[in-house]
Design a binder for these strands. Structure first.
Lengths: 235, 235
DNA sequence: ATATTATGTAAGTAAACGTTTACTTATTAA
DNA sequence: TTAATAAGTAAACGTTTACTTACATAATAT
């Protein structure tokens, strides 16, 4: 915690943001005071106002900064060959990214999630941005893969629209995540978290209309995990 | 808004709770001040302290009071005949109760939801209570209905446990709800909310493993709506 | 060397916070 | 009628809030 006495503006700003983010994530905007942030960052309150015009501006900037990081995690998908296999991988990856920390981001992830949920309750602009980015980075690949999967007979032609299939998958992951914010999950689920996610994935694959055959063929979580890791190893 | 000048302790307490609940629901515990509540209730701040020892105690009492109301809504299920049809009705009802106001509760419902989400972020005891009650009022009927549905060939024997099937259904409804807190939903869903819920129900029925035949046979939303209304008309 | 610029803070500010005190009024019981 | 009780408040309590001011110190450019 002993940092340089004097830093460049950029360095100091980064220090402040790093200190403030977990506080905002944990207790929300109204539950976090300038004093708390200053103490945690190891600087005077006045210095915060050298770098941010107000508490609110600071909060917004932290959200913007956090959002930029979060969207990177999914972009590895783009280069894959569209098809049933990629569709399965895509949804698998979605669940992994939401429900387990991406390597290297650790509790960065936890903060992101909590900020996201606070955003849904208090000012939805952040959530809107995050979801839009997420969708944009998935959409093209999703569309092509779904079309191919239907052509292959792997996916039922549902009345459910393409986007909504995707969002339902996302929602289930998000809700599971929301219920695992505290150490002890809020529900009396059967089994451990890892098994639970396996079950939720199965539920989702059926839900979007994958045939039993396709699920058996393509959903093998060890293989998927290996592929996912390979794709995202670059970063 | 012009109330009696002087009320019994009980009446006044109820007035205060009615005034405070929407404020806490909208802006959270830390975003709501004693002054706000006093103004909204049309009384002095001092009077709040005649009825509640502290702001926090008041908040807790409001949660307890709200939780008592919310659990009533689902108990009509108990008297039904277990089976596939009841299973479908049960999940349909779950979605309706979570996603649309139960008649007579109107925005009471909206407050309940927001308090619930705040609880998941800040102190999960309220959420724990609500979910436990919900589960307890469903569990027996769920178990019997699932067993019968499997015996009838309507439901696939999945590796997914009974409880988790139920929670996944619940989670999807909850997440949809979370994304509809503001007037304009946070996602770019295809279609209106009502259609969206229809699609989510289909997704869920597939997800828990209902056969296509059973879905076609039992999931007719007009009929379900009529039955649901009949069951819950009593209150 | 020195003026300039930018990083930093100690010590404030007014306003808002949750809470309490001291007091007034209406209702009830003897 | 009156004493006791309970509902109600105005005005303050000490503290915390977000934010400023006035001044110091370190780095950089001239």
């Amino acid at each position: 915690m002993t940092e340089k006495a004097r830093m460049s503006s950029e360095e100091r700003k980064a220090v402040i943001i790093r200190a403030a983010k977990p506080l905002f994530a944990e207790k929300g905007f109204n539950g976090t005071s300038i004093r708390d942030i200053a103490r945690e960052a190891g600087v005077s309150e006045a210095l915060l106002y050298r770098h941010f015009p107000s508490k609110e501006a600071m909060y917004r900037e932290i959200l913007a900064y956090t959002g930029r990081l979060s969207s990177v995690a999914l972009e590895g998908i783009r280069d894959l060959e569209p098809g049933t296999e990629t569709l399965v991988l895509l949804i698998y990856t979605l669940f992994q990214v939401i429900l387990f920390e991406s390597p290297g981001l650790e509790d960065e992830q936890k903060h992101h999630e909590r900020l996201l949920f606070y955003s849904l309750l208090e000012e939805d602009s952040y959530a809107r941005m995050v979801f839009k980015k997420m969708f944009d980075s998935f959409h093209a690949m999703l569309e092509e893969s779904v079309t191919k999967a239907i052509k292959n007979g792997d996916l039922a032609k549902l009345t459910v629209s393409l986007e909504n299939r995707f969002w339902f998958a996302h929602h289930l992951a998000m809700a599971l995540n929301l219920c695992h914010l505290s150490d002890k999950p809020v529900f009396s689920y059967a089994g451990a978290k890892r098994d639970l996610v396996e079950e939720a994935l199965l539920f989702t694959f059926r839900g979007i209309g994958l045939t039993e055959g396709a699920i058996r063929k393509y959903y093998k979580s060890e293989a998927l995990r290996a592929r996912m890791n390979a794709i995202f190893k670059k970063e």
